[in-house]
Write a protein that binds this DNA or RNA. Structure first.
Length: 310
DNA sequence: TTCCAGGGGTAGA
DNA sequence: TCTACCCATGGA
């Protein structure tokens, strides 16, 4: 996934223009200092369907499948978090929206220890300030797992295209509007079969991994969401993630970050080039070199790298 | 045509 | 534990 320092790319989705949202339906407070725009754009997830970030209005759009059906949500921050929806929301819908947003925006995650440590490095502190160290995630670990797999060994443009095809092909939608698609649940993916993936969704060799995970979740053999509240130590959680098909060292570190565990650096070509450029004068670096640079950040290594200015 | 992009799985040493 | 090789996809 790209860091914010990459040129942002905003795809214009049809549903944004054709599905205006209603008046304020849900409004809840956030802690002081929380900045929606900072959290939404601190990494690239906002550009993957069914998320979309509108930079002009500071609105995080998302299509969500709620108890009352699929609808368009538009999230802004005039004061607290304001959510508008494409249809009236029932009390159950509102409860779900708030629960999912609290998780996705990390409203209940305390990163004070990290931001305090950052104060010793002004450039890093400035980079962290807009988001407070919070990186946007998806409502379910299922969705984050699939999207993480879609970032492996490919370009960001292809990751966005793969996510868009997955949502457009299998995402649930209101009966009257097939263009309004939420992220497909594992059951829908499992039911789709290999041919649909090969011909329409085209994830390449990632097809098999995504299908396998979807089937295991759908059949009750795998409970990804249980990992969100897990008390397991990080190394044990890492083992569980590495057991998933298509998830290796890079993807497991990314998913640990999603779960709020920042101990481990997700080594990939971007980390390699960043560390080489900034700390080794452009020379080739080993994995040991890269880890050594952020070692002293302890349980905050991932975030220390992520917000490390060029 | 060939290379390669924010890797993962596997065999063989 | 380390290395080499292969794995779809699609843009350059």
């Amino acid at each position: 996934m790209p860091k914010e320092r990459r040129a942002p790319s905003y795809t214009c989705a049809v549903w944004y223009d054709t599905h205006p949202v209603n008046d304020a339906l849900l409004n809840f407070a956030t802690s002081s200092g929380f900045l929606l725009s900072g959290v939404a754009t601190a990494h690239g997830w906002h550009a993957l369907a069914p998320y979309r970030w509108d930079v002009a209005t500071g609105t995080l759009h998302r299509i969500e499948d709620l108890p009352g059906g699929v609808t368009h949500l538009a999230v802004t921050q005039p004061d607290g978090i304001l959510v508008r929806a494409g249809r009236p929301l029932s009390p159950d819908d509102k409860h779900e929206v708030e629960r999912r947003l609290r998780w996705s925006l990390r409203l209940d995650e305390n990163l004070d220890a990290f931001t305090t440590l950052c104060a010793r490095e002004p450039a890093l502190s400035a980079a962290v300030l807009p988001s407070g160290g919070r990186l946007l995630r998806c409502p379910t670990l299922w969705e984050d797992t699939v999207k993480t797999i879609l970032t492996t060994n490919t370009t960001w443009a292809q990751t966005k295209a793969m996510a868009a095809r997955l949502v457009a092909t299998l995402g649930p939608h209101p009966p009257e509007d097939p263009s309004l698609r939420a992220f497909p649940p594992p059951e829908a993916v499992a039911a789709a079969g290999e041919e649909v993936f090969k011909e329409q969704i085209r994830l390449g060799y990632r097809n098999a991994s995504v299908l396998k995970i979807a089937r295991n979740v759908a059949e009750g053999k795998l409970d990804l969401e249980a990992l969100k509240d897990s008390d397991l130590p990080t190394h044990e959680l890492r083992k569980r993630l590495l057991a998933l098909p298509g998830v290796g060292p890079y993807a497991s570190a990314t998913l640990l970050m999603i779960l709020g565990r920042y101990d481990e650096l997700g080594i990939d070509t971007e980390v390699r080039s960043h560390v080489s450029r900034k700390y080794f004068n452009g020379e080739a670096v080993s994995e040991k070199d890269m880890r050594a640079v952020y070692e002293h950040w302890g349980r905050w290594r991932y975030l220390a790298y992520w917000f490390d200015p060029q």
